[in-house]
């Protein structure tokens, strides 16, 4: 029990960027653009976050907020970088998967290149603080026994939770959400109703970039001490897995993200738990991927993803 409780902060820490990045994927896929380059955008966001944090830390005015400004930087740079995906798939009709793959590879190159230019090494300099843990959460931390679970968690999880709710509201309740979904299901229908499919998809991809960039920055600024080539190590793809596992729904994504976070924490803590310590830790690393395949088999036959996702939209073709 006490191990379970002590696993909560670790679970939340890992789950936070997964959830936020998966929400990013949700916007993009709901609009019909497959965003396979979440990983790459997270790298760029993580790099930007770490860099801004390092550079501002010693500044007397901005210093105290360096971590949060880092998150903001990740978000903004994520938007800018996601424009590559938008331009290539929306304007130039590139295959979404191929363009996304190229953008992923480019992210790995460009972030480390910039590290070399700015810091003269293949990683950013370590920041001293990043985002700090919350020592106590009012009310929750005071609950006996389980209150401990809410001690020493990062405030970013609350950003994730709020974003889940906001995403749900935007996608299912607002005008923009209805239009977004129509573009992902049948863009020709949307266009015939006077909806600008290109603009809607641009907006969706940029939101996607903002969230993925933010997720990358959160990951580096909570999980790490600096940005390196392996900072993101496939979490972008786990986010895609969470999106699928959560059936392209914000709440499902939240559940999947928490679960994947838990399985990752379990991998770390397993050695302390009887029986589980017999299972190799690599197994826990594999769980999200294997489960996603299993989920896909279970969902198969029932169309759950956006119908036009990945299809190249050409207004001229009808």
């Amino acid at each position: 029990m006490s191990i379970l409780i002590s696993m909560v902060p670790a679970t939340l820490m890992v789950a936070t960027p997964i959830i936020i990045a998966a929400l990013g994927g949700l916007f993009s896929e709901r609009s019909g653009i497959v965003n396979i380059c979440i990983e790459g955008i997270m790298m760029v966001g993580g790099f930007a976050g770490a860099t801004v944090c390092v550079l501002l830390e010693s500044d007397p005015t901005f210093g105290p907020y360096a971590g949060w400004l880092g998150l903001l930087a990740g978000l903004v740079v994520g938007i800018i970088y996601s424009l590559l995906l938008a331009v290539s798939t929306i304007n130039f009709k590139a295959d979404h998967t191929i363009a996304g793959t190229a953008i992923n590879m480019l992210a790995a190159g460009i972030t480390i290149y910039l590290c070399q230019i700015i810091f003269g090494q293949q990683r950013t300099i370590a920041f001293s603080k990043g985002i700090s843990k919350m020592k106590k959460i009012p009310l929750l931390s005071d609950i006996p026994i389980i209150g401990q679970a809410f001690t020493g968690i990062y405030p970013t999880i609350f950003i994730a939770l709020i974003l889940v709710l906001v995403t749900w509201f935007v996608v299912y309740k607002t005008r923009f959400g209805l239009r977004l979904r129509s573009c992902g299901e049948n863009p020709h229908a949307a266009a015939s109703m006077g909806i600008n499919v290109y603009k809607t998809r641009y907006a969706a991809v940029m939101i996607s970039g903002a969230l993925a960039g933010l997720a990358g920055a959160i990951m580096v600024l909570t999980n790490g001490i600096q940005y390196t080539a392996s900072s993101i190590h496939g979490v972008g793809f786990i986010a895609i897995a969470a999106l699928i596992f959560g059936k392209w729904h914000p709440l499902g994504t939240l559940g999947a993200g928490l679960f994947f976070g838990f399985s990752s924490a379990l991998g770390v803590y397993a050695s302390m738990i009887p029986l589980l310590n017999l299972i190799p830790s690599e197994f826990f690393s594999c769980i999200p991927y294997i489960l996603t395949i299993v989920a896909l088999i279970i969902f198969s036959g029932k169309a759950v993803g956006p119908k036009a996702s990945g299809q190249i939209y050409d207004a001229g073709k009808r």
Binding site: F92, A94, T101, A102, I103, I112, Y113, Q116
Partner: peptide, 18 residues
Amino acid sequence: PKEIGDIISSSIVFFVAI
């Protein structure tokens, strides 16, 4: 910085994609 190689090769793929 050696990553210029990665940048060149990934941007070639990007240009082929578009």
